[in-house]
């Protein structure tokens, strides 16, 4: 097989699936060495995927199109996977708890697997249609996906919180090794804050771009509206801690609902509704 970006991305898919399996093994069987191996494998996958993204950028120039690898559904899913792993590794490095990996890396693995194997996703390098030829493309995609990746991790933390909260008596076993509810709640809050800032920047860069391209910064197109719905959900999550009876479990639920809204913004709108962002229909 030739040494190309698609080969490296296929390799990345299997590495991330392996990494997710290792993190799950580390969590369920509590073997320290497996946890270390999971981190090493994930970092290795990230390096290979980064090289793949660089290669794909170069390949698009060789084809005479010359654009960053952020222009269609396949490329955006690869980028989502890349940035989710990056955000997760930063959190692991800061917090030093590998259990979270069992709830974060599956998002990246599934995104890569879907991008690689789904017949709905066209993986060829395509030229940019006129509407996408803008300096705002990179800013818009990178900010949105930093938000989406943070929300994927926050969703994983929300699921952990609900597990931990449900079996709060357990000091042993697979629940016992999770961080305390208080720690999970604080981590989830910090991750949502980080994601909310990027989502806000993503919506604003999208508005500036739309104003450049069509003369309206907001046209209530389904994709725009769903990003706003997502924004409302996370704004709710940020305020819920100031309302008596809402802190804790309800914020964990909001974190999961928010990520469902992210997924719908990303896939549902493309496949179920019609609009200006015709990404997924190709």
């Amino acid at each position: 097989m030739t040494f190309s970006s698609s080969y490296l991305f296929s390799l990345t898919t299997f590495i991330y699936l392996g990494a997710a399996a290792l993190y799950l093994t580390h969590w369920i069987f509590r073997v320290q060495k497996v946890g270390l191996l999971a981190t090493v494998v994930t970092v290795g996958g990230l390096v290979i995927q980064t090289v793949g993204l660089g290669l794909r950028w170069i390949e698009s120039y060789q084809l005479g199109y010359g654009h960053a690898p952020l222009s269609n559904l396949y490329e955006s899913m690869v980028f989502f996977s890349w940035i989710t792993v990056l955000v997760y590794l930063i959190i692991e490095w800061q917090v030093k708890r590998r259990v979270i990996g069992a709830f974060a890396t599956p998002f990246a693995s599934l995104a890569m697997a879907y991008a690689s194997f789904s017949p709905n996703v066209e993986d060829e390098i395509q030229p940019l249609i006129p509407a996408l030829k803008s300096n705002w493309l990179i800013a818009h995609v990178v900010t949105c996906f930093l938000g989406y990746a943070s929300f994927a991790v926050a969703c994983g933390l929300g699921i952990m919180y609900l597990f931990k909260n449900r079996f709060s008596g357990a000091s042993e076993g697979i629940i016992g090794v999770m961080p305390d509810c208080k720690v999970l709640d604080e981590l989830m809050h910090q991750t949502i804050i980080f994601g909310f800032l990027w989502l806000t920047l993503g919506i604003i860069t999208g508005a500036v771009w739309a104003n450049d391209a069509w003369g309206t910064y907001w046209s209530w197109d389904p994709k725009e509206t769903w990003s706003l719905i997502t924004w409302f959900v996370y704004a709710t999550a940020l305020h819920a801690r100031f309302v008596r009876g809402w802190a804790g479990r309800r914020i964990a639920y909001l974190s999961i609902v928010g990520f469902v809204a992210v997924m719908f913004t990303y896939f549902g709108v493309n496949f179920l509704l019609s609009g200006l962002h015709s990404y997924g229909s190709q």
Partner: peptide
């Protein structure tokens, strides 16, 4: 009250779905 803010944010999130399902 922030309780009203939370209520309004949730209400806006849910009602905004309508216009993405019904063509405008």
């Amino acid at each position: 009250s922030v309780r009203l803010a939370v209520f309004l944010l949730i209400t806006l999130a849910i009602t905004s779905i309508v216009g993405t399902v019904i063509p405008q």
